[in-house]
Structure formats: C-alpha cells, structure tokens
C-alpha cells in the first residue's frame, strides 16, 4: 500500500479526513464566491434578453443549476451510502448524511423557482406532469432519508436503513432527466445535453454553466462542513476528538 502515490484508504478514517476537510473548505468557499459573482454578473448584465420570454427567463440561472445539483447530489449521496453499506466504512455513510440536507435544499429551490417561472410563462404555478412530479418525489426522497436516519438512534443501523432508501430512490433520477423525452410534458425538453449542440445563445449558456459550477462548489463546501460536524458528534467518545483544540476550547 505504501508505494502508492496517494494512500486513499488513509482518508477513509474520520480521524485523518477531519483535518483534510478543514483545509479544503476555504478553497471551495472561495471558488463558490468567485463563480457566484461572475455567474450572476453574466446572468444579469451580459446575457441578452430572450426573444420570447423577455427578462423573465433569467430565473434559469438559478433554476437549472439547482435542478442539476439536486439530481447530481442524489447520485453522489446514493454512491456514498451504497459504499458504506457494502464496505462498512463509517465515513462513507457520514458523507451521505452530510449531503442530504444540501440536496433537499437544491430540490426545493428547483421546485420553488420553477413555480415562479411557470406562472408568468405557462400560466400556472404547478401541473402534475412527469417532470414536475418526479422532481417533487426527489424532494420527498431527500426528506425521507433525513427523517429515517434521524429517527434511528443507533448510528450504524441508521446508516444501513438510510442507504437502502437512498439506493432504491436512485431510479428516480433517470426518470426526472428523461421524463421530457419519454412522455408528453408541459415542461420543455433539455436545452443542454451531451448528445447535441445546446439550443441557447452562447452568453446565456456560459452564465448558466458558471452558476452551475458555483452551486457545485457551494455544495461541496457545505457538505464538508457538515461532515466535520457529524464526525465530531459520532466520534465524541474517542481520544483524538477530545484532544482537538476546538473541542477543548469549547469546554
């Protein structure tokens, strides 16, 4: 193991991951702040007015990044939860729990901004079409995961129960993504996809991608802060936690 360039397994232990996460957090906050500033500037001042939706389309710079992150975070959360279930690694399960509230926030933002966008453009706050309904289910999956893991007192059992829920729910993500292709929906199709050129003006697309990067960096920063708090809570009985300056200072 020692002849490898980086020993990844070293950071699978909460004790060595805790300080590493602490060192990474400011960088991700910094990147998030820069990307938010640049992305919002492009979104509000550089990107042109849309030919049919006018200025109202600018909510896209929040709505699409939040929707992307809500789906992406769920996949990452399910990955960590599944890894924790298979390998019995404590840190993986803690990562899954740290990601859930941020994912729920993203799903909520996606639904909320979508309603604000739907009213002036479509003429309705909400319809039960496949895209909107499956995103709502994603939001409930996040809430269910949080509720289930916090309802079980014994942390390892909570991890296992949560992991099964997270893995079952992962099938919802492709349903959300492809819903607009598979069925007739009120929601329009994807403007940006891997298989063809984006159907957006260049500056609009750029603003959206920068905002997506900002949301991504923010999510990592917040998840790392939360996982550090979870580590402290769960490892409170260990000597290394008791000897941390921030723990001793709090006494």
């Amino acid at each position: 193991m020692s002849n490898r360039l980086i020993n990844w397994f070293k950071y699978a232990s909460p004790q060595s991951f805790y300080p590493l996460a602490g060192r990474m957090i400011p960088w991700f906050w910094g990147l998030a702040a820069i990307a938010f500033a640049v992305g919002l500037y492009i979104g509000f001042f550089v990107a042109p007015t849309d030919f049919q939706q006018g200025e109202g389309y600018r909510i896209i710079f929040i709505h699409v990044p939040a929707s992307w992150m809500s789906m992406f975070i769920y996949c990452v959360m399910a990955f960590w939860a599944g890894l924790g279930l298979a390998l019995n690694t404590r840190l993986s399960s803690m990562m899954a729990q740290a990601l859930a509230p941020t994912g729920a926030l993203m799903a909520f933002l996606s639904l909320w901004t979508g309603a604000f966008w739907g009213k002036p453009m479509w003429g309705t706050w909400w319809v039960w079409d496949a895209r909107l309904t499956s995103e709502l289910i994603l939001f409930f999956l996040y809430l269910g995961f949080i509720a289930l893991t916090s309802a079980i007192d014994e942390p390892r059992r909570a991890d296992k129960a949560g992991a099964i829920l997270a893995l079952v729910g992962v099938f919802n993500v492709p349903i959300i993504y492809f819903s607009v292709q598979w069925w007739n929906t009120l929601h329009q199709g994807a403007s940006v996809s891997l298989t063809r050129a984006p159907s957006m003006a260049m500056t609009m697309l750029l603003g959206m991608l920068v905002m997506a990067f900002a949301f991504w960096m923010y999510s990592i920063a917040v998840a790392l802060m939360r996982v550090r708090a979870i580590i402290l809570e769960r490892e409170a009985h260990t000597d290394w936690v008791k000897q941390l300056p921030e723990v001793q200072g709090a006494r």
Partner: peptide, 18 residues
C-alpha cells in the same frame, strides 16, 4: 376550461430570432 402555454427549449436574443 384552462389553457396553458408550452414554450420550447430555445433561448436566444431577439436579434438572433429575427
């Protein structure tokens, strides 16, 4: 009893649309 607008996934400035 209800009519909703369904727009497409194209976003561009008015000049480009013109």
């Amino acid at each position: 009893t209800e009519v909703l607008a369904k727009h497409d996934e194209n976003y561009m400035p008015p000049e480009a649309a013109h």
